[in-house]
């Protein structure tokens, strides 16, 4: 039989757990951040160590290799500058046309670099922690991407760190379409964590035109993710038993297992200048 001390301990822990699980989400989030602050020195140390290792690995590189790399980057920089000029012109034109149609101006997506400092230690979620918090302008639902494609969205924010729910996590469903066929669908949350690079995409209606190798991009529906961010490539498809929808296995474009740096997208309103944003009367 249980002794008195054991009963006391059982009751105390039971009350503590019930209290914690019934806290309002905002209070629970604050407590979580306060508790997690104890790991901040270690996160800092790990970041410093990684940075040191990076610098140490540059040291033995021969000068000729460095010069070649600088040349390559210079060329890429010139190419990107040109592309940026074209993109700016297209954006200005788009804004002018929207203004002429009387549509509100669309904001610009600004990218902020963040580093992944921790990975999910449990088997239930797909998430990472980044060193980007409210002090840097983080907010819940901001999209997170890499140069390869979509990563996820910010699911919880703290002062200096935020949690990112990765594509396929219970907290990160994504509205996406097949770029080639324009079939709309979605990647639902709560998918297996066994292979972080694989998710299932389900179409809204059955479509035999969806084939392996086609590209899945964000559709912009739902309002969280901007349109046309690459999500991944179709590996294979199957028609659901009901025959109403098609499900495709998608290999994600971004390698979620090897994330080190990510970009957080912030929608910022365009500067309220001039003719670009001033709506003109319709003819």
């Amino acid at each position: 039989m249980f002794r008195r001390a054991q009963i006391l301990v059982l009751v105390t822990v039971g009350v503590l757990v019930l209290t914690l699980l019934n806290l309002p989400p905002s209070v629970a989030a604050r407590l979580k951040l306060a508790c997690g602050a104890i790991f901040l020195p270690l996160f800092g140390l790990a970041r410093g160590g990684a940075s040191f290792m990076d610098h140490a690995s540059y040291a033995p590189l021969p000068r000729s290799a460095l010069i070649a790399e600088v040349e390559r980057l210079r060329e890429e920089n010139d190419r990107l500058k040109l592309e940026s000029i074209h993109a700016s012109e297209a954006l200005a034109e788009n804004t002018r046309l929207r203004a002429q149609l009387g549509a509100p101006p669309r904001g610009a997506w600004n990218r902020r670099l963040a580093r992944v400092v921790a990975r999910e230690p449990s088997a239930w979620w797909r998430s990472v922690t980044i060193d980007y918090g409210t002090r840097d302008g983080a907010a819940v639902s901001q999209p997170v991407v890499t140069s390869e494609g979509l990563v996820g969205r910010i699911s919880a924010v703290g002062y200096s760190h935020s949690q990112v729910a990765l594509v396929g996590d219970a907290d990160c469903g994504v509205a996406a379409l097949v770029a080639e066929t324009r079939d709309n669908g979605f990647i639902k949350g709560g998918q297996s964590t066994l292979d972080a690079g694989l998710v299932e995409w389900t179409s809204m209606v059955h479509s035999p035109r969806i084939l392996a190798g086609q590209t899945i991009v964000t559709s912009g529906l739902g309002g969280v993710f901007p349109k046309n961010i690459p999500v991944g490539q179709v590996l294979d498809t199957r028609t659901e038993r009901s025959g109403v929808t098609t499900t495709a296995r998608v290999r994600l474009a971004a390698n979620l297992d090897r994330l080190e740096e990510v970009f957080v997208l912030r929608l910022e309103p365009l500067p309220a200048d001039s003719e670009a944003t001033t709506p003109r009367p319709r003819r």
Binding site: A28, I38, P121, W125
Partner: peptide, 25 residues
């Protein structure tokens, strides 16, 4: 043992996406 398990659960939840306190029990 009780203190150790409670602290372990809270620390684990603080770095995980799980709801705070879930791992304690």
């Amino acid at each position: 043992t009780t203190l150790f398990s409670v602290v372990a659960g809270l620390w684990l939840d603080s770095v995980s996406a799980s709801r705070f306190g879930v791992s304690v029990l």
